[in-house]
Design a protein around this nucleic acid. Structure first.
Lengths: 141, 141
DNA sequence: CTTTAAATCGGATTTGTTCTGATTTACTAT
DNA sequence: ATAGTAAATCAGAACAAATCCGATTTAAAG
């Protein structure tokens, strides 16, 4: 997803344009990585030094609700990245547990799941592969 | 896994036997569900009314480390259930997001993953299907 | 330009979890 | 059995992530 698309989605849903929102999205768009709220916080403060957590958290959760950001959880804290599943077709990621960097995986296990117990009404699923990226492996030695 | 096996694992690793530990494991063994620390807390207090949360959390994390409990995370809080992957072969679950009830899924997506990017050193994975169990669906109407 | 609802601020609050130092308890070796 | 010791537990403080609150500012519609 591109920054412009994200801003368009906000507009379509009646949210106001603010420089802070754009900058948050821009920061997320810069890297194929999961960022924590704190990460985003730190970076955005270069431009908006007085921005409060509340704003960051509130906007993040709006973005997640609108499908602009994808969410996961690493070491007990939420991590976010610009949605990419929305772009082409649905897929999943390998995630570096050190730096949050991601790489796409082909396909989705749900396609090959022959049978899901019929006493469950399925609402979603999560498939994530964890590991260390080349850079973090090198760095660890 | 059975309560006795779990206690055996503790013993093998040099942990002491305590009634509180046994009771915690017993509580988890009673149901095929993910329980929160608070859930376990409430139930164990029937038998040990003064037990502190520190003990519950510390023991839980010991159990997880030893593979006695499996861990996941629902709505920002840790949830635990007696390990069952250890029993037979490795598998995954459908989890009811209302009550934590689980049902096993056949197979593991990693087996059919043709290619994982080779710039990642894989350390683990998570595959969970979420939904509502029959009882919770009925209850919601 | 005015109006107004949404967005932000800053700080307090909540919630899940972990830490700390003192006390108790399960096990080991006498 | 008993004493010694390391582990387990306790109670409450501390912590970190996230959310809530009332007051203030701001985007955008008229």
């Amino acid at each position: 997803m591109k920054v412009e698309e994200a801003l368009q989605i906000l507009k379509e849903h009646g949210y106001k344009y603010t420089g802070k929102r754009e900058e948050m999205i821009r920061i997320c768009a810069e890297e194929k990585r999961y960022l924590s709220a704190k990460d985003i916080m730190e970076r955005i403060r270069e431009l908006y030094p007085t921005l409060s957590f509340d704003t960051v958290y509130r906007n993040i959760s709006t973005f997640v609700r609108l499908g602009i950001l994808e969410e996961t959880e690493l070491e007990g804290e939420g991590r976010f990245r610009l949605a990419c599943s929305a772009d082409g077709h649905h897929h999943h990621h390998v995630i570096c547990t050190e730096c949050g960097k991601t790489s796409s995986l082909p396909g989705c296990p749900m396609n090959v799941m022959s049978s899901v117990p019929d006493d469950f009404q399925v609402t979603g699923h999560k498939f994530e592969v964890y590991g260390m990226c080349k850079e973090c492996v090198a760095h660890a030695n």
